[in-house]
């Protein structure tokens, strides 16, 4: 059964308040050259059928529910 992993992240144009805060902590640890810390979500699912079909169904789920098109982008990985 294909395993699907969906990565949901804030759009690059949008301020990631959490990422900015974590980046500050990273700098406090002494890693001051670390930049562009962004925080997102990982959503894992399993569904029956072939890998391509699963990818297409996951895409529909992302568009309808898992990601908000105004603020978020997503990327889908499928393990057959």
């Amino acid at each position: 059964m294909p395993k699907i992993t969906v990565y949901v992240t804030l759009k690059p144009t949008l301020l990631d308040a959490q990422g900015r805060t974590v980046e500050g902590a990273v700098h406090h640890l002494g890693y001051e050259d670390v930049t562009n810390v962004r925080i997102g979500k990982i959503i894992e699912m399993e569904m029956p059928g072939g890998a391509e079909e699963a990818r297409e169904r996951a895409r529909v789920l992302c568009d309808k529910l898992l990601a908000n098109p105004v603020t978020e982008s997503y990327r889908i990985e499928v393990q057959p």
Binding site: L10, A17, Q18, V70, T71
Partner: peptide, 17 residues
């Protein structure tokens, strides 16, 4: 209402967290 598409835009995490 925004999520339902009855109003445009979205409400994101407060800038100051």
């Amino acid at each position: 209402l925004c999520e339902a598409g009855l109003l445009p835009g979205a409400l994101a995490r407060n800038e100051g967290l």
